[in-house]
Design a protein around this nucleic acid. Structure first.
Length: 417
DNA sequence: TCTGGGGTCCTAGGACCC
DNA sequence: TCTGGGGTCCTAGGACCC
């Protein structure tokens, strides 16, 4: 088999710069929700030493001294650009596995001129969407990921299919950069004298499986060129759906937190229906401000199994409202909350009841609700429990968010002549 | 003043069954 | 001296990914 990994460079930052020419060639970071920390950096921002996840308030100085630019996250825009790249990939290869918002594996088996194919594809993505990208090729997913990392160092396309190319590529490849090796395992491997991908590949398999388990043993096999995973073109059903947010400020009003939870629950149930699933249980949590340890801390969480699985927002809201009774305490300020839907299942696989259908709720009503919101925009028809169209105290802070250029007519980019 | 929001898989241990 | 041999299910925790 031959795998290719196509990965957008500095994806969020690059997408911002596609539509705002003034951002090109500048140090730019995209901030997380609430403008909290850096989640994407342009090449120029990386050169300034800005780290992934670095808090925004630590970057103030660079704004003044080096003209650093900051943008609030605009996931609507990034998601749409991601879909455009995906359409090009599906056109180029019969088997595509979207892996994240900016990465996909594609099956290159049977392609003779791999490098030529990849270079052509890379250019096409760039020309048709504006998204700069790199392509790594290898006989396993792990090697394609490694090749992609090498491609980002300059060449744009790297093929690790040949054993000679592979040996050279893995010899000075830090083991912590291998896909599946996180900071913990990197430290543990280094302590054992294993510092490069080549060293991990050549280590004793008994040592690896004994000290780290089967997960890293698979990674080792993949580094040796034996595929342990194939392309999965259809996404497996989700096991859980979570919607959670940090609030723009600390919130002491319990009713406001209840509205936030209802809003998250409605959003989660919408995602549930998009996936064609039902939920069997609901879980809620809230956190006080963990970054202020001197303040009183309270981190409650509760779950409940639903009487019958459902995809109806009303049933989920009822469960959340039951769970919420006595959930919060006076004297605490809450900074974050969330809702998760658990025990997800396809309705056709549920065991029916002797007297009632297996699924609670009204699918037709929910389909109508979703259709209205799809056509007229999110939030056109919602539930009162969410505090619909109020300006909530818990809303996210997003000081500098770009327009949704590709998904809202009113926000289309205009070109001056 | 100020620190994201999602996911997955594996393993160990405890409770319980016969 | 010496204390079976299977199982299942659930949960918590730890690791990883973007």
């Amino acid at each position: 088999m031959t795998f290719a990994l196509v990965d957008g460079n500095n994806f969020y930052a690059s997408v911002e710069a596609i539509f705002q020419i003034a951002l090109r060639g500048k140090p730019l970071v995209v901030l997380s929700n609430n403008d909290g920390c850096a989640i994407a950096r342009s090449a120029e921002a990386k050169a300034l030493g800005i780290k992934m996840g670095q808090p925004a308030h630590e970057l103030r100085g660079l704004v003044r001294s080096h003209g650093l630019l900051m943008r609030s996250a605009n996931f609507t825009l990034y998601g749409d650009m991601s879909a455009r790249v995906l359409a090009i990939l599906r056109d180029a290869s019969p088997r595509v596995e979207p892996y994240s918002i900016d990465e996909s594996f594609i099956d290159l088996s049977g392609v003779r001129d791999r490098i030529g194919f990849a270079k052509e594809l890379r250019d096409r993505i760039r020309r048709w969407t504006g998204v700069p990208n790199c392509i790594g090729i290898g006989p396993t997913k792990t090697l394609a990921k490694a090749a992609n990392k090498l491609a980002k160092r300059g060449p744009g396309v790297v093929d690790l299919t040949d054993t000679a190319a592979r040996s050279a590529g893995l010899a000075d490849f830090a083991v912590g950069d291998v896909w599946g090796v996180g900071p913990r395992w990197e430290a543990k491997l280094n302590a054992l004298g294993i510092e490069t991908a080549a060293a991990l590949r050549d280590a004793s398999p008994e040592l690896i499986v004994g000290r780290f388990g089967v997960v890293l043993a698979r990674t080792q096999r993949e580094l040796q060129g034996y595929p342990c995973a194939g392309i999965e073109p259809t996404e497996p059903d989700r096991q859980q759906i979570m919607v959670s947010r940090s609030f723009g400020e600390r919130v002491t009003d319990h009713a406001a937190v209840a509205e936030a939870l209802a809003t998250f629950a409605a959003r989660a149930t919408e995602k549930l229906r998009n996936g064609g699933l039902t939920a069997g249980a609901v879980w809620i949590f809230a956190n006080s401000d963990v970054f202020r340890p001197e303040l009183p801390q309270h981190h409650p969480s509760r779950a409940v199994t639903l009487p019958r699985p459902t995809m109806d927002t009303r049933g989920v809201l009822q469960a959340v409202s039951l769970l919420f009774r006595g959930f919060l305490r006076d004297g605490y300020a809450y900074k974050r909350a969330g809702v998760a839907l658990l025990d997800l299942a396809r309705p056709e696989r549920l065991q029916p009841d002797m007297f009632r259908s297996a699924v609670a709720g009204d699918p037709a009503l929910m389909a109508t609700l979703d259709a209205i919101n799809r056509r007229f925009g999110r939030g056109t028809a919602e539930f009162a429990a969410t505090g619909w169209r109020t300006n909530p105290v818990w809303a996210m802070r997003q000081r500098n968010v770009s327009p949704r250029y590709t998904t809202r007519w009113a926000e289309l980019p205009s070109v001056a002549c």
